[in-house]
């Protein structure tokens, strides 16, 4: 295929970085090569015979390539491969390990909204959306992708420093029997039992319970 003589060092650490199924291929430049290295990217569906070129990542000098669209069917698994070029020389094609979008993606923490009464706070949790092929299209919540998705919620009484943990499956939680006129801070994490996935905890959202009108 008119391949050049390939003695250039290989791209290193070719791997997918995936967050909420936005699947981006990353790699490191070949050892010892300065500027001027260009790259080509191909990908393949596991079990299907051919490598497919990614035109938008042909002769690029950056070391990443967004393959979210090409790997958006999470019932399939994928490989990707990268080749480097410099001054008429080239490297070998360097492949990823097998990429399973369903189990190999990372999940962002949930979004939280909090409201309060005198003695309770209400928490509404929203799972992040799956990366979307067409921004105008119908957003897909990760809840639809992972039906077993649950939320771990932490509630901290800022005055007493007492903390409670709750595990809920639906997206609302009301915490009763709280102290009026007190600051409480809430943070939450997504937890999927199988496949085993969990997000980090969200940043804390603090709110005061209303003052006791009778006091």
């Amino acid at each position: 295929s008119g391949e050049l003589y390939c003695s250039l060092p290989n791209p290193r650490n070719v791997h997918f970085e995936s967050i909420n199924m936005k699947n981006v291929l990353h790699w490191s430049a070949p050892e010892g090569t300065g500027d001027g290295v260009l790259y080509k990217v191909k990908y393949s569906v596991y079990g299907v015979g051919k490598w497919i070129r990614k035109p938008e990542c042909r002769n690029i000098n950056r070391t990443w390539c967004d393959l979210s669209r090409e790997t958006s069917d999470y019932e399939e698994q994928y490989y990707a491969t990268v080749k480097a070029f410099l001054n008429g020389m080239c490297s070998d094609w360097m492949e990823t390990t097998r990429f399973n979008p369903l189990t190999d993606t990372k999940i962002d923490p949930p979004m939280i909204s909090v409201s309060s009464t005198e003695k309770s706070i209400s928490i509404i949790l929203t799972a992040p959306e799956k990366w979307n092929r067409s921004p105008e299209g119908e957003p897909i919540s990760l809840l639809q992708v992972y039906p077993g998705l649950q939320y771990n919620v932490s509630v901290l009484n800022k005055k007493t420093k007492k903390r409670w943990f709750f595990s809920v499956s639906n997206n609302t939680l009301v915490v009763p029997w709280l102290e009026p006129g007190t600051a409480y801070c809430v943070s939450a994490q997504i937890y999927v039992t199988t496949p085993l996935l969990h997000s980090g905890f969200s940043k804390e959202y603090c709110i005061d319970t209303l003052k006791d009108k009778t006091a």
């Binding site: 393949s44 596991y46 079990g47 299907v48 015979g49 051919k50 019932e75 399939e76 698994q77 490989y79 390990t97 097998r98 189990t103 199988t194 496949p195 085993l196």
Partner: peptide, 26 residues
């Protein structure tokens, strides 16, 4: 089962050089 498989997935899949065939999915 999942955690057992996750622990050996990279090792086992690296022993399978055939990208163009699948047993279960194609």
């Amino acid at each position: 089962i999942r955690s057992g498989f996750t622990a050996i997935k990279a090792n086992i899949q690296a022993r399978d050089p055939i990208r163009t065939l699948s047993i279960l999915s194609h």
